[in-house]
Amino acid sequence: MLKIEGLTAEVDGKPILNGIDLEVPAGGIHAIMGPNGSGKSTLSYVLAGREGYEITGGSVTFDGIDLLALEPEERAASGLFLAFQYPVELPGVGNALFLRTALNAIRRHRGEPELDAMQFLKVARQRMQALSMPEDMLRRGVNVGFSGGEKKRNEVLQMALLQPRLAILDETDSGLDIDALKIVAEGVNALRAPDFSALVITHYQRLLDYIVPDRVHVLMGGRIVQSGGPELAQQLEASGYASVQAAA
């Protein structure tokens, strides 16, 4: 489903990604771990199409399509979703309008009829209940005044509504209490299907107890230095990244 080959990227002339090779098959859940500043968020932004990164080499295909040639909204419409490490606040944009506009944009692309305000509200309420989100979060500005954990839940709500085929979760577990962590994990697990894949970026093995990955990759210095099964996460939790460095 997602195939990254020899991807290198720079910011302001500074190399950040130094040759990433990664393949996530349909239905696969892969985790990425790695020290602060190793390039995890950069990779997720490059995949989602944020400006400001110069792709200096390599390729990324999504279902065989050149992902890097698409605009961010086209990537989203083809089923890619990034849950931001730092969700952006949009003062003056109501959360309900935002979610409905996004959902309808995606539905339009899929050839599905758009939802009117009432239909949308029904769907949104359902999803919010599952995430234990209070309904008044629909009425507030997008992420405005949301606590750290509420912002992360709002990301998961968006994912649940948009039903992507590839979800990239950039530290969605950071700042969540234990109950919220389970809820978020349930949100991801609910999407699990033969044609749903996820790339889960995290610092903590705990999340991977709930979202059990098929593969764990360690990103350091802008490249993947080690890959393994779920046990790799446990090993890292116990001995940190020094052991990886020694092995690499």
């Binding site: 944020r50 909204e73 990034l82 931001f84 996004a102 968006q158």
Partner: peptide, 9 residues
């Protein structure tokens, strides 16, 4: 970017 990343043109 946040809006576009959600599919909004």
């Amino acid at each position: 970017f946040y809006l576009r990343a959600r599919g909004i043109p």
